[in-house]
Design a binder for these strands. Structure first.
Lengths: 156, 156
DNA sequence: GTAAGTGGTTTTAATTTGAAACCATACGCG
DNA sequence: CGCGTATGGTTTCAAATTAAAACCACTTAC
């Protein structure tokens, strides 16, 4: 049922997350959840996807600990789907997608939406990767480094 | 051929990018491209996916302007696949995926890799969304705002 | 010239997707 | 109560996608 990218590389730090969210619909569901949608029908109406697909995606999101089904909230006998902490952790990722979309998927004069700071009403800053000492880092300035967390069993 | 999320929402700033990269393999290919891979065979060996699928994904990436096929570089009669500017714009998104993965997909004592600043060898900062005046913004601090770019045809 | 390596395409089966139909429960209300 | 409607799914089935494997073309090595 759960998609599995069966390969040695599946634990590379990018593949494993993609196994959970690497699907056309999943991140749109998460996005709607950030926008406050909670009910099955709300997601379905907002996204216009088939109900069986939505049910499958929600099951998958729950199985991955990204969303949770909670009993009610307005007294109705149904469930609501809410983001977990792990799910809320996707916020920077969604912002990155949106900013990339803003930059490359709209003609300069095409109507689109912009993410703004609610408090001031001004556009947010562009996401930037920075070093500990504050330099902005590009792809060529970074490298992946294997790490073993220093646990208590550090003695040999 | 090209996947299309046919829905009114397809222009929402998130759905449109996902239409280009919302696929399990595509971002892994892009990631490998950031790591310097260029040749068909390199991608195939690194990812272990079927050749027809890789060919289809590369075609799609090229069609979306994310990668480009350039004639050669080492004299061999084949092509190389390189990221365009648009493709390099995916760097923050890949970092966001990786950081989310680091935070939620590995046990504390599980071996994994960390993204480090090449110059200092120190881990990079966590990606944060900030307002123009530097406050860190969470999901509840932002709102999408429709925008029409002020073009020259602004006079009525 | 023949074998092996690279970069694909074609073929075919298995899996996934999606639309529509169906079903079950709850509610509104005359 | 009895009936229509809304919600939240599951089931069914056809169509599209994916994936493995076979095949093919071209080039280089020997």
């Amino acid at each position: 049922m759960v998609k599995r990218i069966s390969h040695k590389n599946s634990s590379c730090g990018v593949a494993r997350p993609l196994d959970a969210i690497g699907d056309g619909w999943t991140l749109l569901i998460v996005r709607d959840a950030f926008d406050g949608l909670r009910r099955f029908g709300e997601f379905q109406k907002s996204l216009g996807l088939a109900k069986n697909i939505l049910a499958a995606r929600l099951r998958n999101l729950i199985a991955h600990g990204i969303m949770d089904a909670v009993p009610a909230s307005d007294g109705s006998p149904y469930q609501e789907y809410v983001l977990t902490k792990k799910g809320r952790g996707l916020f920077p990722l969604l912002v990155a997608i949106r900013q990339w979309g803003e930059d490359f998927f709209f003609e300069p004069d095409e109507a689109h939406v912009l993410l703004v700071d609610r408090m001031r009403g001004l556009p947010v800053q562009k996401l930037e990767l920075r070093s500990q000492d504050g330099r902005v880092l590009g792809p060529e300035d970074t490298v992946v480094h294997p790490v073993r967390e220093p646990t208590a069993s550090e003695e040999k």
